[in-house]
Design a binder for these strands. Structure first.
Length: 542
RNA sequence: GCGCCCGUAGCUCAAUUGGAUAGAGCAUCAGCCUUCUAAGCUGAGGGUCAGUGGUUCGAAUCCACUCGGGCGUACCA
């Protein structure tokens, strides 16, 4: 629908060149009475032309010359909106398009040939994935899905660090538990990893090695056993959510292949680093930053900034057109430094998109659950999936704007009831599948020959909603906002349930029944495609 | 103190990126199943868009300040 209007206006611009002075945008009005599509162009032009919006709109309409077969009516409304009403024969054509493209409907190849990298989760293997990681994981995987739908070839990457202080403490935590089981040592510092899983790893080591490890270095067997075990656990959890990273990048490689040293050298050459008090500082103040930051501690150990810069540069060198980072808000302050580093070394940091999501607050029995991996006071993704299933987990994390400080009410999520929008969508899909089966027995076949029979408000509403699918995906993809798609799907499902309530297929006149059948099969495809993008199943029976 | 994010119906959240009468779900109340799945549908009530000022044809959205909450503010990541 939009394409036709754009072509109309471009022809118009030869007669009225001034319309190019403002951005032409079409929107679906909130109210049906305002037409199928609407533009505010006349109001935008008002200031520069120093004329009244309605007067401009009048001139535009007078010169537009729309095809009567496509556009039924054009009108000026309100302060100067131009509303377009499409011909009734035009609306149902979407059904043919959907049935034709099936699982590809909504996909586009606008980014064909481009490669993107989405880095997400990236939790160090110190404990099971918790609800906090869940939001990151789902948003990352969904962002990757959206990119694929717009034509990108996508790598899903997991960046981790198995050295450093965190992991040292992990190894020592296991060792202390190990000794504890053997009755050797009882002290266990508060800031060590308190989780049950540490004890389980320790007792496995006892079972395997007895007391032979008493004098082992905590960073040896203890650490590596824990790392291996925990990483397997994390991967298993991700798999349950349908998430598969095809690249795992170990920070250690950046040291082994000397890229850390090289960057340090380059920054020095560029005069962007200096030594002070035994540490190396990154001169952010000379690049618009408010203060310089340490990149190599006086102990000789780099801070996270240096490997992070080196890591991003390896991604640049791998030739991606787009780099996505998914971070929790606790990392919000760190990435500007990293981008500055990338920029200073001559790379185009506009290729990097950092998506920050706010924290998830867990509510249980009406109270906030404070979580800490170390204190072992947390709810794992695995527990969550056991409770509510993968589909609910994925949908819930997708359905809120990433900037919202979302509340995850466990008691609510556990209810597999009508309070849950996931079931509402899946139910719509299952219902259509069920009708499909029934109509087969009635010897009814979907037909696109008499689509003009579709003219009740419920049918037209479904048709309009389907017209909006492609644009919704484009918008969701452009801004990495899956919640927009969730809202769309809920509207589409609602429109279907309403249709179901008022219009029947079996038992109505054959031609109408077959047109309606084509209609709902198209709706089913759209729901299924939308859910697929979100990583949620579309069951045929419930 | 400073930086980022947030504040919308009793609760959880939307709002087509500055548009038309601010919308959904849940909860509450009143209705709808001898016919394709009632995990559904119809209707009702519910709002000082945290507050104040500003910008303009037009503000929940942009700017300034105030109040309240989250996250940062390391030679942790």
């Amino acid at each position: 629908m939009e394409k036709y209007l754009f072509s109309l206006f471009s022809r118009l611009s030869q007669k009225l060149p001034y319309i190019n002075n403002a951005e032409l945008v079409f929107n679906v009005p909130a109210q049906g009475a305002h037409g199928d599509l609407s533009t505010n162009i006349a109001m935008l032009l008002s200031r520069s032309l120093k004329r009244k919006p309605r007067e401009i709109a009048d001139e535009i309409i007078g010169n537009l010359e729309p095809d009567q077969e496509i556009i039924d009516k054009v009108e000026i409304a309100g302060p100067g909106f131009i509303n377009f009403f499409f011909n009734k024969t035009f609306l149902p054509l979407i059904i043919k398009e959907v049935l034709d493209q099936k699982g590809k409907f909504g996909r586009s190849d606008m980014n064909k040939g481009k490669r993107a990298n989405v880095e997400f989760v990236s939790a160090n293997p110190t404990g099971p994935l918790t609800v906090g990681h869940g939001r990151n994981a789902v948003l990352g995987d969904t962002a990757a899905n959206f990119l694929e739908w717009t034509g990108y070839e996508v790598d899903r990457e997991y960046y981790f660090n198995n050295a450093g202080r965190q992991m040292r403490v992990l190894g020592d935590s296991v060792k202390k538990r190990y000794l504890g089981i053997l009755g050797k040592e009882t002290d266990f510092p508060d800031d060590y990893y308190q989780g049950e899983y540490i004890k389980e790893i320790a007792s496995k080591l006892v079972a395997q090695y007895g007391n032979k490890l008493e004098n082992e270095d905590p960073e040896g067997v203890f650490k590596s056993a824990a790392e291996k075990e925990i990483f397997e656990d994390i991967k298993g959890t991700l798999l349950r959510m349908g998430i598969h990273h095809n690249i795992y990048f170990n920070e250690k490689d950046l040291y082994d292949n000397k890229s850390i040293d090289q960057i340090l050298e380059e920054l020095k050459k560029l005069g962007l680093s200096y030594e002070k008090e035994g540490a190396v500082w990154f001169k952010l103040s000379s690049m618009g930053g408010d203060q310089d930051k340490v990149i190599v501690k006086s102990t000789g150990e780099p801070t996270y900034r240096l490997p992070d810069i080196a890591y991003h540069i390896t991604k640049f060198k791998r030739g991606y057109d787009l780099l996505i980072d998914i971070f929790g808000s606790d990392h919000a302050d760190t990435y500007p430094d990293v981008l500055a580093g990338i920029r200073s070394l001559g790379y185009d940091d506009s290729k990097v998109t950092v998506l920050i999501h706010q924290f998830v607050t867990i509510i249980e029995k009406g109270e906030v659950v404070k979580m800490s991996t170390r204190k072992a006071n947390y709810i794992t993704i695995d527990q969550l999936i056991d409770d509510v299933g993968t589909d609910v987990v994925r949908y819930f994390f997708n359905m809120r704007d990433r900037n919202s400080h979302m509340n995850f009410d466990l008691d609510l999520a556990r209810k597999q009831s009508d309070e849950n929008p996931v079931f509402y969508l899946q139910y719509a899909h299952a219902r259509i599948c069920s009708i499909e089966k029934m109509t087969e027995e009635e010897k009814l076949l979907p037909s696109v020959d008499d689509l003009n029979l579709l003219e009740t408000p419920e049918e037209l509403d479904l048709l309009r909603k389907m017209h909006a699918f492609e644009k919704t995906i484009m918008k969701s993809a452009e801004n990495f906002e899956p919640h927009t798609l969730c809202a769309y799907l809920e509207e589409l499902a609602a429109a279907f349930h309403k249709f179901y309530r008022f219009r029947r297929i079996i038992g109505t006149e054959k031609k109408l029944a077959e047109a309606r059948l084509a209609l709902i099969l198209a709706v089913r495809i759209v729901i299924k495609n939308g859910l697929a993008l979100l990583g949620v199943n579309a069951p045929e029976r419930m």
